[in-house]
Amino acid sequence: MYINYARREITLKVVYYGPALGGKTTNLIQIHDHVAGNQRSELISLKTAEDRTLFFDFMEVKLGSIVGLMPRVQLYTVPGQSRYEASRKLVLRGADGVVFVADSQISRQKENLESWISMRQHLCGNGMEMSCFPIVVQLNKRDLPAAVSLQLFRRVMSVNGDYPIIEAVALDGSGVRESLRLILERVVTRLRKEIPAARP
């Protein structure tokens, strides 16, 4: 989080984390496509020649003037491929909240779990108390015929009620706005003591 008192700006950082090919970049593309150009930055993608995320994708959304404050949200994705562990840790630096984008395919549950564990390790390793750090789980690709059940997903991942799960089909935009909205609400609630007073 970055607060500029003179300009009454609050800038928050939300990271989309998760296994490779789970839909993290698709989430940002959808947000980019659904927010007017004057309210967002360009979508920056540092990709490999194979069109896979190399370091991160980035965009900023300006939420306009809200009770005298100017909130902005910076959205990042991490590279999902296992070889980019060091990059993922760097992108997580300074995150105020995480949307964990999980893959609904039964065959990808091991990758979901590995990614979940690595994310928790990075956050814990950086001194973050997991019980209060805002995380929203987005269970993506719900349109697949053999998608994992919500119950099985919770059991495999040991995700209890502490972390809300939003079912999504990021490719058609379903669940994308809901995930972003929920993580923003959680981040703002957690950071309440640090955000300057509102002015009517």
């Binding site: 659904h34 927010v35 007017a36 309210q39 959304v61 939420l63 306009g64 809200i66 009770v67 404050l69 909130p71 706005r177 972003l180 909205r181 923003l184 609400e185 959680r186 703002v188 609630t189 309440r192 003591k193 640090e194 955000i195 300057p196 007073a197 509102a198």
Partner: peptide, 18 residues
């Protein structure tokens, strides 16, 4: 600080409007 419950809602609503 700002009225946080309210601010969280306002930010969510701002996103909806965008």
């Amino acid at each position: 600080p700002a009225p946080q419950g309210e601010l969280a809602d306002l930010i969510g609503n701002a996103l909806d409007k965008l």
